[in-house]
Nucleic acid binder design. Structure first.
Lengths: 190, 190
DNA sequence: GCATCTCTGGACCGTTCGGTCAAGTCGTGA
DNA sequence: TCACGACTTGACCGAACGGTCCAGAGATGC
């Protein structure tokens, strides 16, 4: 559990995750995963008895946890919802820049081509929206639910554009795009 | 060309298009396409010599033409950019409701899992953004380019959310979301 | 030393895949 | 009536697929 070098299981997960995001679930073969992970076939079916879809399910859960983590780290130190959202957009932009593998938005991978059925993928996305709603409420955002859905709508769209253009700019533009109908407007009304 | 009943070629295109949008390119087998189109294998390879990817490329072009058509029909009669955008959102919401097949946003199908490489998919998307930019300019929208990109960003995100929730509401909410920094505000100044 | 258990390694399997092909049908013009 | 081109039909193919299986390596406890 506390391995110094990444275990075979971890390498498989990492390889699968990146390939699914690059090529989609059905577009990725087991052989490709094994090659990238430098692992033999038997190991995959030892750690993930149900094979490719099993591995993909675990990878989805990891992604979801990462998302929830990002949400928390973005909004926790913020003083209002707009600031937290800006932080989150920046985090995603960095993520996009850092990892060549981090290409497709996980939401899309899940929903279009994933091993989960549509309902499961949708439920996972809803988890993220809910976490964002809670933060919006905490920070005194009006219509917290709608605000959270808006953030994710724009985030997903911006990510797609970023991927298409191979440039994180759309993610950074999110902040100016969302001149939110916020209770704490940027230009003080008084 | 002016067939009364849909030709085999048309049936193949229609079947392929809907399946690709439902399941992605790699998630759809040739056999499925043939079953839905009620066509034998040879016909497919007669009309589309390069097979599945050939059919998918033609289907992509069809989709792109449809998009450009929708953009034109939405913005042409509009008096300002915001009105045209609202029209377009409504058109997409209707499209989403009408066809059970129209599930995945074509952009995503193209970019994630398509037969086109990323650059080609991106170029197609850029075509739509450009067409929207032209309309924005025509309608006196400030920062027409950024406005057009914003519209598509939000449109793609809303579509994804709509698909996840199996409900066109997010597409309809676009209008309120985009309280655009518009030169022609929504409440008529006169 | 030995039994045991976890994990690795890769040969092997049946199925399904995308694609080919030759035979056949049909409509049309000479 | 016949020849011809456009299109249909489904049997067939090799390759690649996801998955199974078991022999063995390596660590651990006794």
């Amino acid at each position: 559990m506390t391995d110094p070098s990444p275990s075979t299981r971890d390498r498989l997960l990492q390889a699968g995750l990146s390939l699914f995001q690059e090529q989609g679930f059905h577009g990725t073969s087991v052989a490709e995963i094994l090659t990238r992970a430098k692992a033999p076939k038997g190991s995959l079916y030892h750690h993930f008895p149900d094979g490719k879809s099993d591995l993909a399910r675990v990878a989805c859960r990891m992604t979801s946890d990462l998302m929830l983590n990002i949400i928390a780290r973005a909004y926790d130190p913020a003083v209002d919802f707009a600031e937290g959202t800006a932080r989150m957009a920046e985090k995603f932009a960095r993520l996009f820049e850092r990892d060549a593998h981090w290409r497709a938005c996980p939401v899309q991978t899940l929903l279009i081509d994933g091993p989960l059925d549509r309902a499961d993928g949708a439920a996972m996305l809803q988890t993220w929206i809910d976490a964002t709603t809670v933060q919006a409420e905490r920070l005194g955002q009006q219509e917290s639910d709608r605000a959270a859905r808006t953030v994710w709508s724009v985030l997903i769209g911006s990510w797609t554009l970023a991927r298409a253009q191979d440039d994180p700019a759309p993610l950074r533009e999110m902040t100016t795009l969302l001149n939110m109908p916020a209770p704490t407007p940027k230009e003080p009304p008084r």
